[in-house]
């Protein structure tokens, strides 16, 4: 591999834990305001998901952070520098997986990585990186002949070859079939062990939930919620739904008081209960069933999913649970 000791070295990490710091970011295209004052603070080692519908301002924000676009207003610091004025040594510390990029033409996967490795002062090993993204067996396949999922993994490998501290992933699994998505998720999870900070944009709730330490939901250019996926927008306090089918020879009126009082719906033996506190419903319900020696084989507890929270946040008029 063609690394050279005479390239400008990577500046020593300043020891700060802040990787991305954004305050009051604005982006206008003529009269249209794509980003309307957002704040972000992302620390080293975090996997951060920027979640929002198409056209919400995700990619615009990502491209400002990556140094592709000049912002209209606000403060942006990425790895200690303003991306608008960043130089080659800054670019050596980031990796970018763009949304729509075709592979290098007429080169194999391995040659693509060798070419990009030569751009960096201290690149990762080409074969190790191919193995990391699961393309070891495709090393000698022409990049344009790879499948969609494999191309995306090559994109990730190209973004990782410079051994970045910060990786941008713009909608990494859009258009993937479920197994390819799963493989891509496993790969991104694996990046944690490399200590890479990840800035991910996605419109898939399950992707954000599976991968991210922290999620910010953006809609119409504004952040409407931010936090760990498990507690986003007070999700952990939202009422749970408990559903079961009444055992034979029983009716809703036979249920113990706390359960009966919370019944929201009962149709042809199927009962739906809204539980502010799950245990206060489940406890009496189970003791009641045991006392009667009956089973509740299809008992379900459904907690407000990230998708429910997301839909409520991004579309206030929509029906919410």
């Amino acid at each position: 591999m063609s690394t050279s000791p005479d390239r400008v070295g990577v500046p020593a990490s300043d020891g700060s834990d802040t990787v991305i710091d954004v305050a009051g970011l604005h982006m206008r295209y003529g009269p249209y305001e794509a980003v309307r004052g957002i704040d972000l603070h992302i620390t080293r080692g975090e996997v951060f998901a920027f979640l929002g519908p198409n056209g919400a301002g995700k990619t615009t924000t990502a491209e400002i952070l990556e140094g592709y676009r000049r912002r209209s207003g606000g403060q942006v610091t990425v790895l200690g520098e303003d991306p608008e004025h960043a130089d080659a040594s800054w670019r050596a510390r980031i990796g970018v997986v763009l949304q729509e990029t075709e592979p290098e033409r007429d080169l194999t996967a391995e040659e693509c990585l060798q070419l990009y490795a030569g751009y960096y002062p201290a690149p990762r090993d080409v074969h190790q990186t191919l193995a990391l993204v699961g393309l070891a067996e495709q090393a000698n396949v022409t990049a344009t002949r790879l499948s969609g999922g494999q191309r995306r993994r090559l994109d990730v490998a190209l973004a990782l070859i410079g051994d970045p501290e910060l990786l941008f992933l713009d909608e990494p699994t859009t258009g993937f079939d479920p197994s390819a998505r799963r493989a891509a998720w496993d790969m991104v999870s694996g990046l944690r062990s490399l200590g890479v900070t990840v800035f991910l944009t996605t419109h898939y709730m399950d992707e954000a939930e599976y991968l991210a330490d922290r999620v910010a939901v953006i809609t119409q250019g504004r952040i409407v919620a931010e936090g760990p996926p498990g507690t986003l927008a007070g999700r952990e306090h939202a009422p749970a739904e408990i559903a079961f089918t009444m055992p034979a020879d029983t009716t809703v009126d036979d249920l113990p008081d706390p359960v009966r009082a919370a019944v929201a719906e009962s149709t042809s033996g199927r009962v739906l209960v809204h539980a502010e506190s799950t245990l206060h419903i489940l406890g009496p319900l189970i003791r009641w069933a045991e006392g009667r020696h009956v089973d509740l084989p299809d008992l379900e507890v459904h907690r407000s999913s990230l998708e429910d929270v997301y839909l409520a946040l991004t579309n206030p008029d929509a029906h919410t649970v």
Binding site: E66, G67, Y68, A88, S89, R91, A92, I94, G95, V96, L98, E100, T101, E102, P103, E104, R105, Y116, Y119, Y120, P121, D155, L158, A159, G162
Partner: peptide, 15 residues
């Protein structure tokens, strides 16, 4: 290369 985003990707590198 420019229209398919190859140059855009190279732009994110130090080259």
């Amino acid at each position: 290369q420019r229209e398919t985003g190859v140059l855009k990707r190279r732009r994110a590198t130090p080259v």
